[in-house]
Write a protein that binds this DNA or RNA. Structure first.
Lengths: 260, 260
DNA sequence: CGATGTGTTGAGCAAAATCAATGGGTGTGG
DNA sequence: CCACACCCATTGATTTTGCTCAACACATCG
């Protein structure tokens, strides 16, 4: 059940991520690992992609966090996705020419860069890989739908709790330390952009989560103190993450196990 | 430029939808049109799919409207997608076993039902079709991201205006009459579920759009009176719909043309 | 004709936004 | 090492937006 997670910043993490939801034959795995790729590093806030760009590369996140952001005509911001190590950051540009959002580093990040052409050839020639890629895209879309529900219908407190639960679970499912073991790398302003709230209100809401013992804070660091309490506040149900294959990347049994 | 749209309720509409964003070879088109399929009809409100189901069929919407809905643990509802004629209603289940949301008929609808196995075989054996399917999935995901921005950051009035602009444009792009020519088939309660608002507030917001001359109402029917005004209120930018191929399904030149 | 769905309106309330000021780390340069 | 700047977090006061509750109107359909 428990296998050591791949070393930090390894391309294996990407394979792991795909294996967490899709089966891949040894030949498919080998083909993925044989992809020519370059490694790059970005500072927090760096843009990997801007709305309107027509990128020809597919970055894979190896370490750190990244996010997708959209801007309204009035300049209001909304973060529409958070990406964690192992995630592909832009399968979309393989199929659709123009980016519809910005993609930015949240923390310092390492990425492996693959040529879209190479990735597309793999998808066209290997149905198993095509299937894994589509599944990955679909799960991101499912997360987006859950965010629509979260931001549209839950209170500020439940929204925040739900986001923390999701990030924690996604991290543990890919073999990374969760938010019990590490702190959240988001500022209150970024949390506001994520949840459709204001930074001031995030601050006050966070305080209520601390008062209830669900999270703890030391300085700017936020961690989960009581996951069960947080799940209860959030009304969290992990089905939307489609964790249908036993995690293939190690990590101890998640506290979420069996909750699906 | 302008070719007659396919007859109402025809399977051609599905092909048109795919062609609106992806090129398909004659062989690919023929393979799609040769898919074995059954026709079915559903009453308004009928469930085509419920969260937790493991469907083995792929319905294609031929006429009428449908929607995806999620429920929170507290029973709050959020509509997370609207589907119009020509749309595939569930490519997702070809790749992911369990549904993460409900799928319901909004109006009376006609659907063509394809076996997932057949669709999957086509995707596995024909890269052009795989590409079109992935692109279709990606565009739906892009719409979801725009909704996150819309519901998270825009005022009630702008939200409502934005939704009307989007539906109008999507309809015209697939050769259906838009919301200038036909009325909106959504109740105020459904609009509330879409936009994360309450029915009462939708009612008041709608009134302000009428006062400004952007929409007109006769009885329960809502239509667009002044599309440019509505777009201005919404801050509408159609880029997220990825209309990158010239519409292949006829219809006159859209008033949005060139705005991308 | 009544039953049921929706739509409409008003009064009061609650959640979150806004505005504004203060405080606290962290990092840089003198 | 200290001073300063900068960014972020915090807090209070006030306003706004949208919600809740409740009553009523209006259509459609049996």
């Amino acid at each position: 059940m428990s296998r050591p997670p791949p070393s930090k910043g390894s391309f294996d993490l990407f394979l792991c991520k795909l294996l967490s939801h899709s089966g891949l034959s040894p030949a498919d795995r080998a083909a993925l690992l044989a992809l020519p790729r370059a490694h790059r590093r970005f500072e927090p806030g760096a843009f990997l992609l801007r709305e309107g760009d027509r990128p020809d590369i597919c970055p894979i996140l190896l370490s750190g966090f990244a996010f997708r952001r959209k801007l309204s005509q009035d300049g209001d911001r909304q973060i529409v996705a958070i990406k964690i190590p192992g995630d592909s950051l832009d399968f979309q540009s393989i199929f659709v020419s123009t980016a519809d959002h910005d993609l930015q580093a949240l923390t310092e990040i390492e990425v492996a860069v693959i040529a879209n052409r190479d990735m597309e050839n793999l998808v066209a020639s290997r149905p198993g890989i095509a299937r894994a890629v589509i599944t990955d895209i679909l799960i991101e879309a499912s997360v987006g739908r859950e965010w629509l529900l979260n931001n549209g219908r839950r209170s500020a407190r439940a929204r925040l709790a739900h986001l923390l639960c999701e990030l924690h679970l996604r991290l543990e499912l890919t073999g990374s330390p969760g938010l019990v073991a590490r702190s959240l790398p988001l500022t209150q302003e970024q949390l506001a952009d994520l949840l459709g709230l204001t930074p001031v209100h995030i601050n006050r809401t966070l305080k209520t989560l601390v008062e209830r013992g669900a999270v703890v804070r030391s300085g700017r660091k936020i961690r989960i103190a009581d996951l069960e309490k947080l799940k209860a506040i959030a009304g969290f149900n992990p089905r939307y993450l489609h964790r249908e294959v036993d995690a293939a990347c190690g990590g101890e049994t998640s506290p979420f196990a069996g909750a699906d």
